[in-house]
Computed example of a mutant assay.
Amino acid sequence: MPRKPVPVNIAEKLAGFSELWSQKTVAVLNDYEVKLAKLHGEFVWHSHEDTDELFLVISGRLTIQLRDGDVVLDPGELFVVPRGVEHCPLADEETAILLFEPTGTMNTGDAGGPMTKAAELVSS
C-alpha cells in the first residue's frame, strides 16, 4: 500500500537536532537533496568543482565569505555559490539554513578534513 504524502515541517525538523555543521537531508528532488543545518562559528574554505550550492537562511544570519567580498544573508534570503568558487560560511550566532545540492555532495567540497561529514537522512 502506498505511503500517504506528508509535508516536511522545517521547524519540527530543526527542533529534532542540535549538532552544528551537520547536514540533515529532509527531502530528495530528482538527483538533489534538500538539507537543513545549524551553524555557529566559521567553517572551512572550500569549493565544489562540479556543482553550484544554494544557501537559504531560515533563522539567524549567515556570512558567506568569498575571496572578492562577503555576502551577508538574513532570514528569508538565499544565495547561490557558483561551482568552483571558493567560499567559507561564517555564523556569528546560531543560524539555521536550508541547502539544495546534488545527492552525495560533501559539505567540505575539495577541502576535506575533520569537518567533513556526509549528510544524514532525517526520517519523516
Rank of each mutant, 00 (worst) to 15 (best):
M1L: 14
R3C: 09
K4Q: 12
K4A: 14
P5A: 11
V8E: 03
I10T: 12
I10A: 11
A11N: 09
E12N: 08
E12W: 12
A15T: 12
A15F: 08
G16R: 08
F17V: 08
F17Q: 02
L20V: 02
W21K: 07
W21Y: 05
T25V: 15
A27F: 07
V28C: 10
D31K: 08
Y32Q: 13
A37T: 12
K38N: 15
F43W: 06
W45E: 14
D52V: 04
E53A: 14
S59T: 07
G60I: 00
D70Y: 05
V71W: 04
V71L: 02
D74V: 02
P75G: 10
L78Y: 11
L78D: 00
F79V: 00
F79C: 02
V80S: 01
R83P: 01
V85N: 06
E86A: 03
E86D: 04
P89H: 01
P89E: 02
P89M: 03
E93V: 10
E94W: 03
A96H: 15
E101V: 02
E101S: 09
T103M: 11
T105V: 00
M106E: 13
N107I: 03
G109L: 03
D110H: 06
D110E: 02
G113S: 06
G113V: 00
E120Y: 04
L121I: 13
L121A: 15
V122D: 15
V122I: 14
S124C: 10
S124H: 12
